[in-house]
Design a protein around this nucleic acid. Structure first.
Ligand SMILES: [Mn+2]
Ligand SMILES: [Mn+2]
Ligand SMILES: [Mn+2]
Ligand SMILES: [Mn+2]
Lengths: 157, 157
DNA sequence: TGCAGGTTGTAGCCATGGCTACATTTGCTC
DNA sequence: GAGCAAATGTAGCCATGGCTACAACCTGCA
């Protein structure tokens, strides 16, 4: 009944609860990130397939994501609708300019998250696994902190 | 056409692409985490509401998540079906033993992620925002690395 | 005691992201 | 050039997580 937490400073120590407004903002940001993570993973993967000397075919994407090819085809349709990829029936898949930009951004963020996890002593396997999910929720500010930490560690011992 | 990446060691540097099997494992783990993050956030929030001296009512949950009360009611139904909460019509919401355990685990993980982000120089606001999404994708191994880093920093300067 | 307003529940809509089953197209091989 | 295997596309199913609109229920206060 009694709400003794109106002035929550964000930290929740000892029965404390955050301020409602800030909490809403946090959850909304997380939901926003959730809506774009599939697109980010797709364009990143498509760019990787194209750049590694081949083309991006639905069947390859499906094999690497571990989903059915029907899922991939449907998702590619959405990505095309949203202007991230270009694809003609029975042809391989290409990135639009926007898609290429998003892919490049996602890729550099992905790599930085992996490097950071390795830098703090996480194993290769876990670093790659965790990065695949974490990356989509790492803001530019946190990314910058990751970068700083890597640099600091490189210059020190 | 030519696949020159069969022996990808996990790192993708210079046109390199990871081994398909490992990549599938990573994406599958991420999808698994995605399926449980809503439940984790709900039980964590319910525990916070209860422990801060009040009760957990659907309307409070809705206000703090920034979603409609109808969404909350429906989700609570799923959580009850899955054995995480107990609720009777028109009464406030309680956690089952399993729900309480999940809440406690989620809460400690959440707090550790926040503390870690603060420790590497992220601002309060961003730390809380990013943690809300990142937490669900941080494995026990990475969590341990976070913990180590905080300890190391506390003991040094 | 009654009722108004807040809370809860229900119904039904939508988009997303999964799936299987089946149909169509392509491209390689013979 | 025909045929076949693989790739692609389509249809239709399901669960989740959002929403609005409306119905039902409680409760505190007049
Ligand atoms: Mn990812
Ligand atoms: Mn990625
Ligand atoms: Mn969360
Ligand atoms: Mn949380």
């Amino acid at each position: 009944m009694i709400n003794m937490a109106e002035e929550g400073d964000g930290a929740r120590d000892g029965g404390r609860i955050p301020a409602p407004d800030q909490q809403v903002a946090n959850f909304c940001q997380t939901r926003r990130a959730r809506r774009t993570e599939i697109a980010e993973d797709y364009v990143e993967l498509i760019a990787d397939l194209i750049d590694s000397g081949g083309e991006a075919r639905a069947v390859d994407i499906a094999r690497r994501l571990g989903v059915s090819h029907a899922t991939v085809i449907k998702t590619i349709g959405r990505l095309q609708r949203d202007g991230l990829v270009v694809s003609k029936p029975y042809r391989s898949i290409f990135l639009s300019d926007a898609g290429r930009r998003l892919a490049e951004w996602s890729r550099s963020r992905h790599d930085l998250v992996v490097k950071f996890l390795l830098a703090i002593g996480v194993s290769e396997e876990t670093a790659h696994a965790d990065a695949e999910g974490m990356e989509h929720h790492v803001s530019p500010e946190t990314l910058a902190a990751f970068e700083r930490h890597i640099q600091r560690q490189r210059s020190n011992g």
